[in-house]
Design a protein around this nucleic acid. Structure first.
Lengths: 220, 220, 220, 220
DNA sequence: TATGAATGAGAGTTCATTCAT
DNA sequence: TATGAATGAACTCTCATTCAT
């Protein structure tokens, strides 16, 4: 019953939310199974509809075992979020060197395709989970950082003003549009069209700002 | 205790969720009070934290009375959503004649300011509610329709291709960015900056597409 | 099922432990039934063995109703204790005028017989409950006060020193011996013999202290 | 972590509650550690609050090991009670020769001081435990026996009637008053005053009964 | 019509006990 | 022998819903 839905290496976090430190391999397996079951349960029933019994059943362990490893239900959700965020951060870390070297249009495209792939892993549990997890400041920070790295490698964009606002709009718009599209049963356009649009939106917006900046001879 | 938070006329919808058709004026007042209390309760406790008892208390009626007018709790939420959607549609309807006559940049700005005003009415209950209510297809349709009206009045945009995708991106991006910003305790930019950015994003994106279209002499 | 085990008038205390104020007669009946059931449950299963379900069952109400009137299980115990203490205080108040007029030997006897009668009311639920309820400071205070009243009416005892210690010993010894005897399945003496003994113990102890005091010409 | 709190030799009782007979020295050490941990756990958390996990942790053995030596949790409590009773009986046995030779006043005093010392050993775990362990018939029997021994050595008391009742009252009153005083955070008198009072209570009571008996020329 | 007391299914959580290692 | 991960029955408490008044 317990299917392995997470392939990335996971470092078990022993924090205040972990009831006891799982030192043995068997324990680690159980912890993983619980977290995985958490994603499935939330995907099935929503974050408020998911119950500890449901998580226990999906993970194939008794309810008592949940509390061997997690202080309470909330701690399971915290661990799930940690894993989700870690997976995204890991993805960003992994592809940053490649991403900073491509054109802006391709950056947007590649990034959003990567994002889609991650959300659709494991029968789309991440996608469903993401709807309940207002995306964390960590992810936003990481994306901001990626943008900054990109600008470093492409210094012409340094002249662009309102970088913060541009990032905010493009990141939010990109992520939200993609998530919404993926969740939509009958989208009015193909995913490729959406990505293409987002890419063009970003480039035209950034270029417009860039041109504007270039017209100001002594820019701030 | 029950503050009137909705001023627009509300047409009581008698559907499958409505337990009885309230023909009397007094009944309508009660229904309104319940719906208003629902928004306040959700704003206070979240959509899953709000309880029927809480709604009854805020609305000043007994719990039993809730079930006189609504089949169950879900029906109250449905009615709340109907009212929320109606308010937005009403707003759009009201301002459409004005909006179609301004520049694209101003359209975006005016629209998002209007949207903000609506979300912030009544101590922001709509804003909090909106976070739980993935915005309905009706709203999206209405916005699409507004966009079409705008194009009718500004026929140069008729040449733009991928209208659907552009709308999707700009609407989603605009609404989501605004909502997120309003909900953020410590935003990194001012609301005006955000609106300005969204306006420029839209115009540059649309203009870029327009120019592209103009370069194709015999476009589809 | 709900038997009325308390005959004394009970003033429903609306305090922090009462979840809601029962204004209606029906509610008061339910509250009483719950408290009565609490005594029976504790008598049956002990104070830690008694469960909310058990109390609900005995009182003939649903578990939910327990929480209509009591914040939690502990609040039921608090109400039980209040009622128990009130009953004892009421008894003391009622008989004080009579008790202060009898001899010391009779005071002890009458008091302990009264105490026994109260503990054996209602199938002895109070007796069993008392074993779990380290008797409250209020009861001790009331007994101390009775002793003081007695001394006022019998001023010869004013010369006795160590009044505090004497009271402590006689009260504790009396109550504990009686309670223990009543709880004992096969006592080695009759209850009358025990009472007689406690009466003689008290009088001889007090008289000895009194004589000692009289031998000191210039007391204290 | 496991502190040795019991110094007296303990005879491991192999009864229905003992899962296996520990023949080896190491096993005996473990059993001792568990029993000691039981007292500490009960002192910390009360007899119902103490958990097997807690006992295992304090004793430094695994939870599984608890069940190697004890059939269940109750068996641990039984063993604890046996040890507690044994310690008291041992104390009584040890001091009986000395106690029977002193005056009645001193007998009471010495006995109660001994009792206090035992209850306060090991950070008072016995004192806290005693509140949960209605003292056993064995202890009462042993005290009765001591009283009989005392009368043998002091034959003048042979004439006292109602010996049983006197013992019952003085023993119960003494033990309960002392226990209560020791457990009280803010006692109204010093411990020495209490002991003095109990001594005087006993002597005056017994002497009164003695005199009464002497007045009856041909008493039984 | 309007009420709120009553309900009980089901939630999260605990812990004595078991058993594979 | 000794372990502690695993268990699940049973606990306390919540809350949408009902119904007698």
């Amino acid at each position: 019953m317990s299917i392995t839905i997470i392939r990335l290496p996971v470092r078990i976090q022993v924090g205040i939310f972990m009831a006891r430190k799982p030192t043995q391999k068997r324990a680690k397996v159980t912890v993983d199974a619980i977290i995985e079951a958490g994603f499935i349960a939330v995907a099935e029933s929503g974050i408020h509809g998911a119950t500890t019994r449901q998580i226990a059943e999906i993970s194939g362990v008794g309810v008592g075992s949940l509390y061997e490893y997690f202080k309470n239900k909330e701690a399971i959700y915290v661990a799930m979020n940690e894993r989700f965020v870690d997976d995204i951060l890991e993805m960003l870390r992994k592809f940053t060197p490649e991403l900073v070297r491509v054109s802006l249009a391709d950056l947007v495209k590649k990034l959003l395709y990567l994002f889609r792939d991650l959300l659709q892993m494991h029968n789309g549990v991440y996608l469903k989970y993401f709807r309940y997890s207002r995306y964390s400041p960590q992810i936003e920070s990481a994306l901001m950082e990626l943008a900054m790295h990109y600008v470093m490698y492409n210094p012409k964009y340094l002249r662009v003003q309102n970088m913060m606002t541009i990032n905010y709009i493009c990141i939010n718009g990109g992520i939200y549009s993609v998530t919404r599209h993926l969740s939509s049963p009958n989208p009015n356009m193909s995913f490729d069209e959406l990505i293409d649009g987002l890419s063009r939106m970003t480039t035209s917006y950034v270029n417009a700002e860039l041109e504007l900046a270039l017209q100001l001879p002594y820019a701030e």
